[in-house]
C-alpha cells in the first residue's frame, strides 16, 4: 500500500512538471506578457482619433490602405492636433510599436506620425503613416 502511494505521488509531481514546462513552450510570450502566436497576418482594421474629451474628432471614416500602409483621416474643424489619442484596431494577436501611451501630438503635418504593426508571430512588420487633415470651412456661396 505504501509503495502504491509513493508511486502515485511521484506520478503526480511528474505530471505537474510536464504541464508547467509544456505550457511554457506552447505559449511563448513577449516582454509585455503578450502571446507570440503563429499568425503572420499584419494589418490595421480600424483607426480613430479622439480628443481630450475621449470623443472622436474624426469626420467620416479613416481611409486605411493596407498595401500602401497609409491611413488618411480627416478631423473636425477646430480640433487641437497636439492632444489626440490614436486608437488602432489590429488583426488578431498583432501589436503596435510604439505603444500608444497617452495623448499624442499630430500637429506636425509635414512629418506625419508612423506606427509599426507587428504580426502575432512577430515575424512580419509593416509601418503605417498616419496623415491627418483638418476640416476647413468652405467659402459661403
Amino acid at each position: 500500500m505504501k509503495r502504491i502511494k509513493t508511486i502515485f505521488n511521484i506520478l503526480t509531481v511528474c505530471v505537474a512538471f510536464l504541464t508547467v514546462t509544456a505550457s511554457c513552450y506552447d505559449n511563448p510570450v513577449d516582454d509585455d506578457g503578450l502571446l507570440i502566436t503563429d499568425r503572420d497576418e499584419c494589418y490595421v482594421s480600424n483607426f480613430d482619433l479622439t480628443g481630450t474629451d475621449h470623443l472622436t474628432v474624426r469626420v467620416g471614416d479613416a481611409i486605411i490602405d493596407n498595401d500602401a500602409c497609409t491611413i488618411h483621416v480627416t478631423v473636425a474643424y477646430g480640433t487641437d492636433l497636439r492632444h489626440l489619442y490614436p486608437r488602432f484596431s489590429l488583426v488578431t494577436d498583432a501589436i503596435l510599436e510604439p505603444k500608444v501611451e497617452g495623448m499624442t501630438d499630430f500637429s506636425d503635418l509635414d512629418n506625419p506620425r508612423q506606427y509599426t504593426v507587428v504580426s502575432g508571430s512577430r515575424r512580419v512588420r509593416k509601418t503605417y503613416t498616419v496623415y491627418v487633415t483638418v476640416q476647413q470651412p468652405t467659402s459661403q456661396s
Binding site: A76, Y77, G78, Q135, Q136, P137, T138, S139, Q140
Partner: peptide, 12 residues
C-alpha cells in the same frame, strides 16, 4: 451656425 460652410462651430 457654419453648417452651410461644411463645418460644425456651434457653441464655442
Amino acid at each position: 451656425n457654419k453648417t452651410n460652410q461644411g463645418v460644425e462651430f456651434g457653441h464655442t
